[in-house]
Design a protein around this nucleic acid. Structure first.
Lengths: 198, 198
DNA sequence: AAATGGTTTAACCAAATGGTTAACAAAGAT
DNA sequence: ATCTTTGTTAACCATTTGGTTAAACCATTT
């Protein structure tokens, strides 16, 4: 049997991911957890605290993915291939995560700054240094490392951040979407590597 | 002197873009428009109607950008260079637009399907056909046109969809961000063209 | 100047919402 | 066995929120 506290967290995750902070209702979370609304406040002081727990858990899942590419010891091409495939695999299993995190960071500026100075925040500097070193050594093209990083994120994350728009515009079903994402795991890496290799 | 109805729309745009549908408060919109709350309901039946007006106006600004690349008569390379530069220029002036549209499409599934069957919805088929023709003619590489389209959107839009996350992770100021975007106007196009040209 | 019609306001209302309380049950601890 | 802590519930509360109403305002027409 799963503990009530965890039931709450699971329910809260579902509701917050589905509706965002402002759109989520405490009653809806209680219903989804099949418990009394008062229990929410027994385990978590208030909506903000509950949200914080959900958000931190969400980001806690994503952070290792980012740190892998930032701090690993592998070569750059290796890292890129590895990250894009891993990231897409992971996000297919947790489709609401990217849009949830990005939306809430956008909408709660005060929360965002507090969070951005947090310990768990991944630091891309090692990866940028690595790119600069390769550039200096002449092994890759002279491209702004921050642009490379941005491209990796953009190509990997965008379809999951804007799934409704993407499916709507491309006029594709959920299955076609997943097939596209599968194809993307190698396609993206190839394109990024092509864009930096000499 | 600007009409009250327009004052309301401007204020509503600001508040909705800032806080999203669920987070927006009618009182806040009234305050921002410096009018009585009852006026909102005099000109627009209710919150949903007001939101619809704002959303349609927002998408109405973005649609021409998309239709340009979808239905223009230019060559593909030309189109890509033109679109990326134009899109970034436009979005720098309207920074909240992409995240607003994508967020609301994600959060209001019923609204999304209704909207996706709307007339104004851009149709990418001509562009996809164009890519397929070039592939058949052997003038560009054999790449899934939908992936190309997705890449164009991802690379162009992502930084504006996740500005807080991007600025936070890359640890850059607003000015640096804008400089990056300026650089991106040509960089993105080069990369996409590189990825499809033989 | 009286009537007309659109516009604006202050006050009000019902429902929704986040949160609390007090009683009660279960489970350990003494 | 009894006391104490922890978990759970139903009822309740204060505030917020979207929305309404009726009266006042004001420009134009008659």
């Amino acid at each position: 049997m799963i503990s009530t506290e965890e039931q709450i967290l699971v329910a809260a995750k579902n509701v917050f991911h589905r509706s965002g902070y402002a759109g989520a209702r405490m009653q809806e979370i209680a219903d989804e957890a099949a418990i009394n609304k008062a229990m929410l406040h027994y385990y978590y002081k208030n909506k903000q605290q509950l949200f914080r727990a959900v958000f931190m858990q969400a980001f806690g899942k994503l952070a290792p993915q980012l740190n892998a590419i930032f701090s690993g010891t592998e070569g750059i091409f290796e890292k890129i291939r590895w990250f894009t495939a891993d990231y897409i695999d992971f996000v297919v299993e947790n489709p609401y995560l990217p849009s949830f995190i990005i939306q809430e960071l956008n909408n709660n500026p005060d929360f965002a700054v507090e969070f951005m100075s947090h310990d768990g925040k991944p630091n891309p500097q090692p990866f940028i240094d690595q790119l600069n070193k390769e550039i200096a050594a002449g092994t890759i093209r002279q491209i702004n490392p921050k642009q490379v990083l941005l491209n990796i994120f953009a190509l990997s994350a965008f379809p999951f951040v804007a799934p409704v728009m993407v499916k709507g515009l491309l006029n594709i079903s959920e299955e076609e979407f997943e097939a596209l994402m599968e194809e993307r795991k190698t396609l993206i890496a190839d394109q990024i590597i092509d864009s930096i290799k000499i």
